[in-house]
Simulated scan of single mutants.
Amino acid sequence: MHYTIKKLTRTDVALAKQLIEAWHTDDGATQVIYPREKYLNKLLTKKSFHAYVAIMGDQVVGGLTAYEMEMFDTEETEMFLFEIGVNKEARQQGIATALIEALKQTCYQQHIAIIFVGTSMDNEAAKKLYAKTGGSLEITPFYTYELK
């Protein structure tokens, strides 16, 4: 089935909500709680935030989000691919690859030379995708602080 990739803008709050619903539903959630429209609109307006969706027919079937990270010690910006996902029914059709390629094009246009993304060591599908799209594996411990 044919799909299109779209970079979301501030007027695409409805598509952003569809992406959130797609991700939560794919994760098995029975109820989706969305951020407020004002919050999503503000986020989609930021130059440093990037969101892409894959659309089949009139449904969002996947997408990614990424954040520009300005470096402190050099005058460079790197891109952090924060989340990527494609609904189970739409996998194995090149959608995740197309989403990453769209992000890479944005990086080329903005002279961003590095994209980095994290995944768990047991996520074989993600590791395969990232290698296929030109990523190289780095073994770097990653710590999380949960501040409550």
Rank of each mutant, 00 (worst) to 15 (best):
Ala14Phe: 04
Ala14Glu: 09
Ala14Pro: 02
Leu15Trp: 03
Leu15Cys: 07
Leu15Ser: 06
Ala16Ser: 14
Ala16Val: 01
Ala16Asp: 04
Ala16Asn: 06
Lys17Gly: 00
Gln18Tyr: 02
Gln18Thr: 00
Gln18Asp: 09
Gln18Trp: 03
Leu19Gly: 02
Leu19Ala: 06
Leu19Tyr: 00
Leu19Phe: 03
Ile20Cys: 06
Ile20Ala: 06
Ile20Asn: 01
Ile20Gly: 02
Glu21Tyr: 10
Glu21Gln: 12
Glu21Arg: 13
Ala22Trp: 00
Ala22Pro: 05
Trp23Pro: 00
Trp23Asn: 13
Trp23Cys: 07
Trp23Gln: 15
Trp23Thr: 11
His24Asn: 13
His24Ile: 00
His24Trp: 07
His24Phe: 08
His24Leu: 10
Thr25Arg: 12
Asp26Ile: 07
Asp26Gln: 13
Asp26Leu: 11
Asp26Met: 10
Asp27Ala: 15
Asp27Tyr: 13
Gly28Trp: 05
Gly28Phe: 05
Ala29His: 07
Ala29Met: 06
Ala29Phe: 07
Thr30Tyr: 06
Thr30Met: 09
Thr30Val: 09
Thr30Arg: 14
Gln31Trp: 01
Gln31Tyr: 07
Gln31His: 08
Gln31Ile: 08
Val32Asp: 03
Val32Cys: 00
Ile33Thr: 13
Ile33Lys: 11
Ile33Pro: 04
Ile33Gly: 05
Tyr34Met: 09
Tyr34His: 12
Pro35Ser: 05
Pro35Tyr: 04
Pro35Asp: 01
Arg36Ile: 08
Glu37Arg: 09
Glu37Tyr: 03
Lys38Asn: 03
Lys38Ser: 11
Lys38Val: 08
Tyr39Gly: 06
Leu40Tyr: 02
Leu40Lys: 05
Asn41His: 15
Asn41Ala: 15
Lys42Tyr: 09
Lys42Ile: 04
Lys42Cys: 08
Lys42Glu: 14
Lys42Gly: 10
Lys42His: 10
Leu43Gly: 07
Leu43Thr: 10
Leu44Met: 06
Lys46Ile: 04
Lys46Leu: 15
Lys46Met: 14
Lys46Arg: 14
Lys47Glu: 14
Lys47Ala: 14
Lys47Pro: 15
Lys47Ile: 09
Ser48Gly: 10
Ser48Ala: 12
Ser48Val: 08
Phe49Val: 12
His50Asp: 02
His50Lys: 11
His50Leu: 07
His50Glu: 04
Ala51Glu: 06
Ala51Asn: 07
Ala51Gly: 05
Tyr52Asp: 01
Tyr52Trp: 11
Val53His: 02
Val53Met: 00
Val53Glu: 00
Ala54Gly: 03
Ala54Phe: 05
Ile55Thr: 02
Ile55Glu: 03
Ile55Arg: 02
Ile55Gln: 01
Met56Tyr: 14
Met56Lys: 15
Gly57Val: 06
Gly57Ser: 04
Gly57Lys: 05
